[in-house]
Amino acid sequence: MIDSVYNYPLYRPPSEAYSLIIQITLGCSHNKCTFCNMYKGKQFTIKPFDQIKSEIDFFRKQINFIDKIFLADGDALIMKTEDLVKILKYINLKFPEVKRISLYASPRSILLKTEEELKQIRELGVSLVYIGLESGDNETLKEIKKGATVEEITEASLKMKKMGFQLSITVIAGILGNKDSTNHAVNTGKVISKIIPEYLGILCLVVHPETDIDIRCKKGEFIEASGDQIMEEIKMIIENINIPENEKIIFRSNHASNYLNLRGNLPEDKEELLEEINYALSNDYIRKRNEKYLKYGRNGF
């Protein structure tokens, strides 16, 4: 069975639901973010090429056709370029029909690559890169132990765009709890306006067990933001995204963690998105949903 090949837990972006996942690394090279427990139980490991090769062979025997492949785990780009190139060449050999290869990438792993290295990776089929911005505010990034500054994330993102990669960027609403999030929201909108990624997703903070935020919650040092606070924060982020009319960001805020499902294109649908938020806030929708969350848990919706 295919599942026997994987080292769990296994994560992939929602848009990779129908992709073949190939684990070329295990865990996350940073693994210190205060909000994340995805890879807490894994030591970061770059898998040997022979093992990856045999797993690719296994997948090829099991799967007749696949057009999208996602390279896991948390930061596949961090491996040496020569090793990643060998893997990509073998994937192209065994899956000639594949149209898109994607992966998560950290700012550090991007900045460590030369433009020539990135060009080679792009030419071998990697076309979409997922980057967790989380916040466009340096104080917020420091508090959540992101391990990168706004300037580094912006530089890395623009570098990838220059080399022809599409970017899918995520940010997190409610990351500061019920503290004043004005700087986080305003600066996040401004940074997105500089990067102009092809895709933008806004998630809402979910306090996962055994994270630093969970420990602080139990000590009473961190109080989660209310649904209304989170929606006001998302509204402020969108208000501060200002890009030329000839540009386009595909925007989604419809993850299971979100209080209100939002989707559209920026800047085209900006005013409509803001109107949706205002309508939900004025009609008490968010408060009622928040009460359900407190009773059943956000993932129970």
Rank of each mutant, 00 (worst) to 15 (best):
N258H: 02
G147L: 06
S193N: 10
I250Y: 13
S19N: 10
G189P: 07
F49Q: 03
Y11N: 04
E198P: 10
M163I: 12
K146C: 10
I250C: 10
E232V: 10
L273Y: 14
E224W: 01
Y11F: 15
I63C: 11
H184S: 07
D67V: 11
V186M: 06
I56W: 04
L281S: 02
K161C: 08
K235Y: 11
N283V: 02
S181D: 13
K68N: 13
I250A: 05
V85H: 07
K288E: 15
K288M: 08
C28K: 09
P209N: 08
I195D: 01
K80Q: 14
I69T: 01
L124P: 10
L294C: 10
F49G: 09
I91R: 00
N240I: 07
P48H: 07
H184T: 03
N178V: 00
L77I: 06
I213F: 11
C36H: 11
S193R: 03
G27V: 04
S54I: 11
P197G: 07
C217G: 05
E276A: 08
R287Q: 08
E272S: 15
R298D: 05
K53I: 03
I169S: 01
F251Q: 09
I230H: 09
E155S: 12
Y11S: 04
I223L: 12
V207C: 11
A148W: 09
E16M: 10
E16T: 08
K270D: 01
S257C: 01
L124H: 02
K194T: 13
L266H: 06
F49W: 05
L84K: 11
A156H: 09
F95H: 13
N64F: 06
E239F: 00
N138K: 06
E139G: 01
I238F: 09
R289P: 00
I2L: 14
L274T: 12
K42E: 00
N92I: 05
